[in-house]
Amino acid sequence: MSSILSIQSITKFYGKIRALNQVTFEVPAGSVFGVLGPNGSGKTTLLGIVMDVLKASGGSYSWFGNPPSEQQRQQIGTLLETPNFYHYLSGEQNLRIAAGIKGKGESDIPRVLEIVKLTERKDSRFSTYSLGMKQRLAIASCLLGNPQVLVFDEPTNGLDPVGIAETREVIRQLAREGKTIVLASHLLDEVEKVCTHVAILQRGQLLTAGDVNEVLVNEDFIEVGAEPAQMANLQGLLAGLSGVKQVRPFEHHVQVFFGNGVMDTGELNRFCFEKGVVLNYLQLKKRSLESKFMELTEEKAKARIATAN
């Protein structure tokens, strides 16, 4: 799979603050690539650099295998940070400006307004739009000219639950059409539901990047539960089980993580039963991106403390 965006050792300083540190990854063609990280992790800075509104302190990037240029940006639909439009103009007039800059015809404007359900309000001034409508207009602007690559930075910001669901569906539909989408978000759930690939950033440091299935490889775990009286016994039993890496206790169940692969649920059930613990709950679960993210960021924090000491 060829690379749409290639980022090589990008570093960015704001004064003495290092916002990005040697970030390197590739966005494959046709992927939905999630750039994940908490607020302040450098997601928007990174996207700002590849869209030429910020200057990198070091490193390089290329779009479509070529050095960056304005002609490439015209072929990419981008929503970066907040919707930026002329407040005194209507939604449609703003889209005409965007179409003019992108070198696209104005004939596509009714289509994109319809997709984001803003046709009825197209003649209203942008300043009268709600936050969600502004966000939807920004998405409409991204879709002008039906670009093959889209960059969305927190696209569901300010949207109500219906708007969030609709936007996610628009992104899924775009993905089904084979478009490449770069999606920056601090919402782990959003990335997990939509993305095929992921890069995780924390404090400007790339923690991991790759196929969602690769990043989450061997991360399945089993949740088991028993009668309250047997919970302590169950926990001790599982901790001593060969191949178990970690047992996380919760109020009514425990999560069992394995070092390599995952144990067959039937085998685990039999093992517990033979040891005198009757399970009343047993489920194989795919580890969420959230837990992976928490583990990665915790590991990083521990490493930093160790280095400091």
């Binding site: 240029s69 304005e70 002609q71 940006r73 015209q74 970066l80 930026n84 965007a98 800059i101 992108k102």
Partner: peptide, 9 residues
């Protein structure tokens, strides 16, 4: 910013 993002140099 938006003008640059949309494709002006």
């Amino acid at each position: 910013r938006q003008n640059i993002i949309d494709g002006w140099s």
